[in-house]
Simulated scan of single mutants.
Amino acid sequence: MAFTVGSAWAQPSPTAEVAKLLEQGKLSEAAQRAQNHLKQNANDVQMRFLQGVIATEQRKYDQAIQIFTALTQDYPGLPEPYNNLAVVYAAKGEERKAAQVLEQAIRTNPSYATAHENLGDLYARMASDAYAKALQLDGSGKAMQPKLSLIKQIFPAAAPIATAKATATASAAPAVAAPVAAPAAPARTPADKPVAVSTAPAPTPAASAPVVVTAAAPVADAKPAPVAKPAEPAKDKEAAKPAEPAKAKETAQPDRQQHAVAAVEKAVLAWAKAWEQQNMPAYYAAYSNHFDPQGGTLAAWKAERKDRIVGKPAITVEVRDLKVSVHGERATANFRQYYAAGSYKATTRKTLRLQQEGDKWRITREETGR
């Protein structure tokens, strides 16, 4: 189940320090800092939330339940405390309580993706446990085994990482047209006359002459039809020519759009990979010189990011549910980011604003929780 640390509020300096200690795995020091801060600022919502996360990481589940329950009572409109309360209940093996809390989180915010994902994982776990118990009671278990395997595939533990290749292939696949039912043949009346079926090849659209329907006449009295003037088909053919460049132009526009979307997706995945590999030159290269660090200078932001990335024992950065929209030379990438470093794990929504600089797409703004 995904565990979120929340990002709905701007972090003041004390909470930023505690979050950093938590990320580094220094749980005791983080807990002490949080407690000292809350003695002077008892209503700091973000610090209370972090205190609950720290207690969970320390496996002090009863304390974490008390903290998150109080937050749901004081701030019933926030889905994050409900989510983490459910995670703690699940860790204690109280799946039904966890499911009830997650359902409450979804009622609070129906679009909260983390709660939906966790509830799916929880239901899968409960169903799997139920089938396992049924297998024990059945004795042989042979007939039940395929069901147990199937239920584990309904809600995978982690969504697949988005790739530029997969998304580009999906967007380029032609839509399959639904079959159209043939119109029913009209009922034939006694007045209908037999229709003559011609076996001659159908004329091409360019050379077609107007068809004139006349009353039926005896074949012997039929007069030869006048020969069509060659100028008329030539005129029709010339009139059809301007449509071809227009069609080619319309086709070229979606191709350029798809190429731009694929390029943005590739840039986002390269950014995540550089972060994961602690490759700071490649990581910095993903950002524009016009990047807005939202407080402070670009140089200070780079120094802070290097301090938080380099030296970690292992970093995992996964981009899930990536959606890209391109408007001219600007683009927006929305996705769920899964981050793990040591014992610290977090899943959050992220939005990257990018702009095209030459043949590269670079980040100009980074927003969390949107």
Rank of each mutant, 00 (worst) to 15 (best):
M1S: 13
A2N: 14
V5W: 10
G6Y: 03
W9I: 11
S13C: 02
S13Y: 02
K20E: 13
E23I: 06
Q24G: 10
E29M: 08
E29H: 08
Q32M: 07
H37C: 02
L38T: 04
K39D: 07
N41Q: 09
Q51V: 03
G52V: 05
V53P: 01
I54P: 11
E57P: 07
K60G: 03
Y61F: 13
I67K: 03
Y75P: 00
P76R: 12
P79F: 05
Y82K: 05
A86C: 06
V87Y: 06
Y89P: 00
E94Q: 12
A98M: 08
A99D: 08
V101F: 02
V101P: 00
L102F: 05
E103K: 12
I106Q: 04
T108R: 02
P110K: 09
T114M: 04
T114R: 01
A115L: 01
L119N: 03
G120V: 00
L122I: 05
A124H: 03
A127H: 04
D129W: 01
D129I: 02
A130R: 03
A132H: 06
Q136E: 06
S140H: 02
K142P: 02
L148M: 14
I154Y: 14
F155N: 14
F155E: 11
P156R: 12
A158L: 12
A166D: 14
T167N: 13
T169M: 09
A172T: 12
A173K: 15
P174L: 15
P183H: 09
A185M: 04
A185F: 03
A185L: 10
P186F: 13
A187P: 05
R188H: 00
P190K: 00
V195S: 00
A196P: 00
S198M: 03
P201E: 02
P201S: 03
P201D: 04
P203V: 01
T204Y: 13
P205A: 14
S208K: 15
P210Q: 09
V211A: 13
V211L: 14
A216G: 01
V219Y: 12
A220R: 06
A220F: 05
A222W: 02
A222H: 05
A222V: 07
P224L: 12
K229E: 14
K229Y: 11
P230E: 08
A231I: 15
P242T: 07
A243R: 09
A243Y: 06
E244D: 13
P245I: 14
P245W: 13
P245E: 11
K249I: 11
E250A: 15
A252I: 10
P254H: 13
H259P: 00
V264M: 04
V268Q: 05
L269W: 01
L269R: 07
A270L: 01
W271Q: 03
K273D: 15
E276V: 11
E276P: 11
Y284Q: 13
A285G: 08
Y287D: 00
S288M: 00
N289I: 00
P293W: 00
T297V: 10
A300W: 02
K302M: 10
A303T: 13
D307K: 12
R308I: 01
I309S: 06
P313N: 05
P313H: 05
T316C: 05
T316P: 00
D321V: 07
V324Y: 11
H327S: 15
E329Y: 13
Q337D: 08
S343T: 10
A346I: 02
L352Y: 09
R353S: 06
D359N: 14
R362S: 07
T368F: 07
